[in-house]
Design a binder for these strands. Structure first.
Ligand SMILES: [Mn+2]
Ligand SMILES: [Mn+2]
Ligand SMILES: [Zn+2]
Ligand SMILES: [Zn+2]
Lengths: 152, 152
DNA sequence: GGCCTTACTGAAAACGTTTTTCAGTAACTC
DNA sequence: GAGTTACTGAAAAACGTTTTCAGTAAGGCC
């Protein structure tokens, strides 16, 4: 069964489990372990990495359940994909709402922030020139986090 | 060998072949067919689709060569991946330089435009609050193109 | 608490996509 | 035209993801 120490990420974890519960999913040891591994991760994890991290708490967990849990969390808008140069580098906890990712190219950590950027002039420009009506966007930033700048 | 009718996309095709040549690649019938299929496509194509399109001009082409050609063009910054909700939906010709994609959710066509958006206030905000130094970004818009709006 | 329903689980197999291997071919250089 | 070697396509291998299925346990109910 395992014990779940209250920590800084405990709140995120409780929130995620609550959201799963609200959506009709059952709370199982496998899901607890996967969700805990996800909120404790400092950088985006792919299914294989998340699987390995979850096995620390729940060694009997299967990789399939990781895929299924990620699917559910993605559906609920609780996690987002992070895109690298060659494809998807992993999934990261973002919580509810319109969020963006700033991804450090040196340490690989993801920093989540609310989408407060202003793309309205770009959207108007597209509307005028192409008559394209913008409905949504995918925006991800890359660069260097504070610590990795200092390390240089 | 096949004939290459001069058309609107002929310029793009010549440019791509030229760029491949400049980078030291040899120009082969397979590459010609793949590049032609790519510039003639009105929407992002995945390797399988590009393979089928290229076979019209060069039926003996192999899917492997499509992968290798896409890798080269991506390396040269001539094509970009287009990201959908569930992952990469395909590759699209963008040409040299910082370009963005507006992707129509109805017809699937991609509209390429130069990156003239202003993210500086967002970047400054990230610099101030997180001390994150932004170096680059991935921005893709989704919505409805002019024709698909009219069709509603 | 115990019972019942059924969502969930993990192992295995199946699957589709991408990469590697390799011997033959042909593009480019001289 | 001859020589070098990058490129080709078929096949096999490797990879990541999804499906299948019989056993398990979560949550609702009394
Ligand atoms: Mn936004
Ligand atoms: Mn831009
Ligand atoms: Zn960093
Ligand atoms: Zn459209």
């Amino acid at each position: 069964m395992g014990r779940w120490l209250p920590n800084r990420e405990g709140l995120k974890m409780d929130f995620l489990l609550q959201e799963l519960r609200r959506a009709g999913y059952r709370i199982t040891d496998a899901r607890r372990a996967i969700v805990q591994a996800l909120v404790n991760a400092s950088r985006p994890l792919n299914p294989q990495e998340l699987y390995e991290a979850a096995r620390v708490q729940h060694p009997r967990v299967g990789l399939v359940t990781v895929y299924r849990t990620l699917e559910a969390l993605l559906e609920l808008g609780m996690v987002q994909k992070v895109h690298g140069e060659q494809g998807c580098v992993g999934y990261v906890y973002t919580g509810r709402g319109h969020r963006h990712v700033a991804w450090c190219r040196a340490c690989g950590r993801a920093f989540i922030f609310e989408g407060q950027e202003d793309l309205s002039s770009l959207e108007q420009s597209l509307e005028r020139t192409l008559h394209f009506r913008v409905e949504g966007h995918l925006l991800q930033l890359t660069g260097l986090c504070a610590e990795c700048q200092a390390r240089t």
